[in-house]
């Protein structure tokens, strides 16, 4: 699944560790999601949406 995590993170001037800390996950997890190696679970996707204050469909896009 494609996502806009890297763009959204850059807009806020956050590095991967900043986002990982906000989500309570490892930097490796953020990297894996950003690069499309891993699709997050629904609870984690909701946490990501909460952190960016956006709906899930504005972050994760259909292939």
């Amino acid at each position: 699944m494609k996502n806009r995590l890297k763009v959204l993170r850059a807009e806020r001037d956050w590095n991967q560790q900043d986002l990982a800390d906000a989500l309570g996950v490892s930097r490796q997890s953020v990297n894996a999601i950003e690069t499309g190696k891993y699709d997050p679970s629904l609870p984690l996707a909701f946490r990501i949406a909460d952190v960016f204050a956006l709906p899930i469909e504005a972050i994760f896009l259909r292939d």
């Binding site: 309570g24 996950v25 490892s26 490796q28 997890s29 894996a32 999601i33 891993y38 997050p40 679970s41 984690l44």
Partner: peptide
Amino acid sequence: MEDEYLRL
């Protein structure tokens, strides 16, 4: 394990 990606 709490980190779902590392658990995977």
